[in-house]
């Protein structure tokens, strides 16, 4: 599992530029599914055929990042966020553009009060001597992902983009290990989730499934002096009850809860007071699609050092796999 996640998180996939991660995932799964296609937005849809229920399983493959907006005469690059990017988490980090160019993110030194730091006070330094040299490597409109290679720390994995490559890993492992079922299962690696659940919306409309299960990360309440939340790393995958975009359908919640019970898997319940996820778009599609989610507890989400438990991810695979068979 660690090797797979390391490979997945290493791939470039800033929202709207998911080509590299999509090709990698395609290579991992194409021999294990009956058909595989890419839709107009770039969602990767892999299908295991059957005559039973139509089930959509979604994990988003895009990641947050930045986009170059201006290159000054000295070659420093100003940028805008793609998805929710924290100015605090960005400070002192490295970014990698799609063509491999590495830069460091720093702030205008005259700014006395770091509390008032905004993304507009930050710039990317790619080591260019001037504007001309910078533009040989980076043009405005180019996107970059944060650097944060995967490392193992006990049962925990530390990496960038565990949101939501850990979910992609759950789907990939499920695809590889799922026995033949009656159901028609659409595994969708969605795009542009971080920009507002946009890939899931069009994919759901194309598929019109009977119900949908998404796999994504969720926040936790297990770090020093944090906000109250019952979800903890290492205590099992969480079954989503609600987030800012969806109240999960009780039938899907029940399926997941009862499957976990049957397998005797540790689970938790997720109530996320902020933020949204792919089921938020899916469940409102074309007259309503019952939707639910398995969430992987993840600390430090949207930082280059997100942290999640391998055993939670393994258990999420078991839970998803069995839910699709039943």
């Amino acid at each position: 599992m660690f090797e797979l996640i390391k490979n997945l998180t290493d791939k470039f996939g800033v929202s709207g530029n998911e080509e590299e991660i999509r090709e990698f995932i395609k290579g991992e799964i194409k021999s294990k599914v009956d058909s595989i296609e890419v839709d107009a937005l770039g969602n990767l849809i892999a299908t295991k055929k059957g005559n039973g229920k139509k089930i959509m399983v979604a994990a988003h493959m895009d990641e947050i990042g930045v986009m170059a907006t201006h290159i000054d005469e000295k070659g420093f690059i100003r940028f805008s966020n793609i998805g929710w990017v924290s100015q605090n988490y960005s400070l002192g980090q490295r970014v990698r553009f799609k063509n491999g160019t590495i830069g460091t993110v720093f702030f205008e030194e005259k700014l006395d009060d770091l509390k008032s730091l905004k993304l507009s006070n930050l710039y990317i330094d790619i080591g260019a001597k001037n504007s001309e040299e910078a533009q040989k490597k980076v043009n405005i409109g180019d996107t970059a992902a944060f650097c944060g290679p995967a490392e193992l720390a006990g049962d925990m994995i530390i990496s960038k983009a565990l949101d939501d490559r850990s979910g992609c890993a759950v789907l990939i492992e499920t695809i590889k290990n799922l026995p033949k079922t009656d159901n028609e299962i659409y595994f969708v690696f969605t795009v542009q989730e971080e920009l507002g659940l946009r890939g899931a919306k069009t994919a759901a409309f194309r598929i019109l499934p009977d119900f949908a299960i998404a796999v994504d990360v969720t926040l936790t309440g297990d770090t020093p002096d944090c906000k109250t939340m019952e979800v903890k790393c290492g205590m099992g995958p969480a079954i989503k009850i609600k987030d800012g975009s969806v109240v999960c359908h009780n039938d899907v919640r029940k399926l997941l809860t009862e499957t976990a019970k049957k397998l005797n898997l540790p689970i938790q319940y997720e109530i996320l007071e902020r933020g949204g996820s792919d089921p938020g778009a899916i469940h409102l599609t074309a007259g309503g699609i019952p939707s639910g989610a398995i969430s992987i507890p993840c600390r430090y989400t949207h930082s280059p050092s997100e942290m999640a438990s391998i055993s939670d991810i393994d258990n999420a695979v078991k839970l998803l796999k069995e839910s699709l068979i039943g």
Partner: peptide, 17 residues
């Protein structure tokens, strides 16, 4: 509301819908 957490003494925290 939904029950968001239950503390060691049995007090319940809520989230609002």
């Amino acid at each position: 509301f939904l029950v968001k957490s239950i503390d060691d003494k049995g007090f319940i925290k809520l989230t609002s819908m």
